[in-house]
């Protein structure tokens, strides 16, 4: 696996430093998200090749029968080098898969890279199938999925069943990312029940829990003065909370959040309503990364402490970032996932 090459592909031709992983690059020639967002399912579960970047991003909080917590990640990224392109090997579409399992004291990560156009990786909307090499996320429809991934030291095989509807972030799925108006199409399926088997160096573990699948695509999701983000997906008993803050070069933040009722009714919160503040930092992979947070959404009476289950959940992939399961305490108790990018 040639991990050095992928960031080069994410970086646009003229860029030197334009946001995390080149996500602040110009969208020249690519389509850009427009308001109002109008979705067409199931075809929108499939790829949108005319947008620069897109992902199918699944995280799960799991528990073994003895109560031991685990975290799991299955992600497929699509990145287009150019807006138009050839067939076969000349296709400008590139795919990157990340899979991880987090335990309280270990974090297993593996990565796959693939060219588009040759069948090594891709997504079809109906029947739904997302794959890269031997990893797959498949089902007759989006509600019932089978998921596998395998690395040199771990593997998993999971079954997912949606217990609620798909929810849309921002303005019905048009999610604004900066004051300058950069935006993405963004929806989630946060209601999956998940069960299956983790294969770890110490043996197989039967687990069950909750999974959250994010779908997002855009051509310029960040503005060029944004350096990274801190993203939370929390299950809080009386509801679920998706919130993120985008860090800007001038030290300010752009925040956004969605409150999701158990029946799937959502409330979107504009910049400033949601807040997340680091409480303590740890040194991971030679960087200082906050793994304990105070997260507040006053409108819903949320004031909680979010604590990583394993501080060392560093994704040592070609585009490195932190991604791991968390526990929530305070006004609400629960579990969730935290993603932090752009920590140098």
């Amino acid at each position: 696996m040639n991990a050095r090459i992928f960031p080069l592909l994410l970086l646009p031709v003229t860029a030197s430093a334009q946001g995390f992983a080149g996500l602040g690059a110009d969208s020249d020639g690519f389509s850009t998200p427009q308001e109002p967002a109008i979705f067409d399912f199931p075809s929108d579960h499939g790829p949108h090749d005319d947008y620069r970047i897109e992902w199918w991003y699944l995280t799960a909080n799991l528990e073994a029968e003895d109560g031991t917590p685990y975290g799991l990640q299955w992600t497929l990224f699509r990145s287009a080098l150019t807006p138009n392109g050839g067939e076969g090997w000349s296709s400008p579409q590139f795919w990157m898969g990340h899979a991880a399992v987090t335990t309280t004291d270990e974090h297993f990560v593996t990565e796959r890279l693939a060219r588009g156009g040759i069948g090594q990786a891709g997504v079809t909307a109906e029947p739904f199938e997302a794959w890269i090499d031997d990893w797959q996320l498949t089902g007759l429809d989006f509600d019932t999925l089978q998921m596998t991934a395998s690395g040199p030291d771990f593997a998993y095989d999971m079954a997912l069943n949606a217990q609620g509807p798909i929810v849309f972030h921002g303005a019905d799925g048009y999610s604004v990312k900066s004051a300058a108006g950069q935006a993405s199409y963004y929806y989630s399926q946060p209601f999956y029940d998940i069960q299956g088997t983790l294969s770890l160096p110490d043996g197989d573990v039967a687990v069950r829990g909750q999974a959250w699948l994010d779908r997002e695509w855009s051509s310029q999701p960040l503005s060029d003065d944004q350096t990274g983000w801190d993203w939370f997906s929390l299950s809080l008993g009386d509801g679920k909370l998706m919130g993120f803050r985008l860090r800007q070069t001038d030290g300010t933040f752009y925040t956004s959040a969605t409150w999701i009722e158990p029946d799937g009714v959502t409330t979107a919160y504009p910049d400033g309503a949601f807040d997340a503040q680091p409480l303590s930092r740890v040194s991971v992979a030679g960087r200082s990364v906050p793994t304990q947070w105070r997260v507040t959404l006053p409108d819903r009476g949320v004031d909680v402490t979010v604590q990583a289950i394993n501080d060392a959940a560093w994704m040592d992939t070609s585009v490195p970032y932190w991604e791991g399961p968390v526990t929530v305490t305070g006004t609400h108790d629960g579990v969730g996932y935290l993603e932090m990018t752009g920590y140098e």
Partner: peptide, 12 residues
């Protein structure tokens, strides 16, 4: 390969 443009050209 440490030139993004060259890499893209090579691949496409």
């Amino acid at each position: 390969l440490n030139d993004g443009a060259m890499t893209i050209d090579m691949l496409t």
